[in-house]
């Protein structure tokens, strides 16, 4: 594995690492650019970008993982562009660097969470991009964020009681010693498990009805791409870009677009423009090692099919 640390960009403020294609790997594969997952530096959540970059390099891709301005080791830009503009410009500069240094002409952009949005928004304005891999692009209105919070709490307490508390010697000792707060247990079961589950079901039903009564607007070319709904509408209007959309099992952001963009998802998948994959047993940042392996395998299969 050969990797090179680079300082690049028009202000020489961007720091990244290039993973060179392995000797003997197929030539002519598109170069890959990985954008930060939120404020996590360029190694990605749980170092998964490093693992991904090295495995894609073994497949013949040149991969650049880098820090956007003001994130990780890259310093803020001196031109004070707004974040929605400089993130696109930074990713374009990453492609410019690879084009100038290695002659790369075609690119795949990849990113987790906020990095997924940066990647797609750049692809929408730069014709060099062939495909985008979006890993757990979260976001949404306040009510969906609240729904997500409740889902996590329900899951936490279900797992806590079913897998730890009931089988813990300490719990039974506390019960025997009269040290258990039954009020807290009742609150957790009644509110965080049962009530949250019921309100969650009601919320989803309400969203489905709302969707039927007010179907999504048609694609608009000047629409800001800050939501997955807008991105999927843009996908419908664009040709030439393929999208791999990856969600962790139980991601409420996937539930959301399955309601709000049901027909678009079907249409895009049927047209071969979009592939949606769910990684089982994963949290938002792919903590379990097995989920990291699955995530990388899904991406490698997708890139291989496009080479």
């Amino acid at each position: 594995m050969k990797e090179k640390a680079i300082l690049f960009g028009k202000f020489k403020t961007l720091i990244g690492v290039v993973s060179e294609p392995e000797p003997g790997a197929p030539a002519g594969r598109a170069a890959v650019v990985l954008s930060n997952a939120g404020l996590i530096h360029r190694i990605g959540p749980n170092r998964v970008y490093v693992k991904l970059a090295r495995q894609l390099a073994a497949q013949g891709h040149r991969v650049l993982r880098f820090d956007l301005s003001g994130v990780g080791d890259s310093q803020p830009r001196p031109d004070h562009l707004p974040v929605e503009e400089f993130t696109i410009d930074d990713v374009k500069q990453a492609m410019d660097y690879l084009a100038a240094a290695y002659g790369d002409e075609q690119f795949l952009l990849m990113g987790h969470c906020a990095g997924a949005y940066h990647s797609f928004r750049t692809a929408a304005v730069d014709g060099r991009v062939q495909g985008v891999v979006m890993m757990n692009p979260d976001g949404g209105e306040t009510e969906w964020i609240e729904y997500d919070r409740k889902r996590k709490l329900t899951r936490y307490y279900s797992n806590y009681y079913s897998q730890k508390s009931l089988f813990s010697k300490e719990t039974w000792q506390r019960i025997a010693g009269g040290q258990i707060s039954y009020r807290n247990v009742l609150k957790n079961v009644a509110q965080n498990m049962i009530w949250n589950r019921l309100t969650g079901l009601f919320f989803k039903l309400k969203q489905q009805i709302k969707q039927r009564l007010a179907p999504p607007p048609p694609a608009a070319t000047d629409e800001k791409l800050f939501t997955m709904e807008a991105i999927l509408r843009r996908c419908q209007a664009m040709d030439g870009i393929r999208v791999l959309l990856i969600y962790s099992e139980g991601a409420t952001s996937l539930e959301r677009i399955q309601i709000s963009m049901k027909s678009a998802l079907k249409q895009l998948s049927a047209a071969g423009k979009l592939q949606v994959q769910v990684i089982r047993g994963a949290d938002h940042i792919f903590s379990p090692l097995e989920s990291q392996t699955d995530l990388i395998a899904v991406i490698k299969n997708w890139t291989a099919a496009r080479s």
């Binding site: 899951r155 307490y157 806590y160």
Partner: peptide, 8 residues
């Protein structure tokens, strides 16, 4: 941390 994402 696992309790937050283990499948229900």
């Amino acid at each position: 941390k696992q309790f937050y994402f283990l499948s229900e």
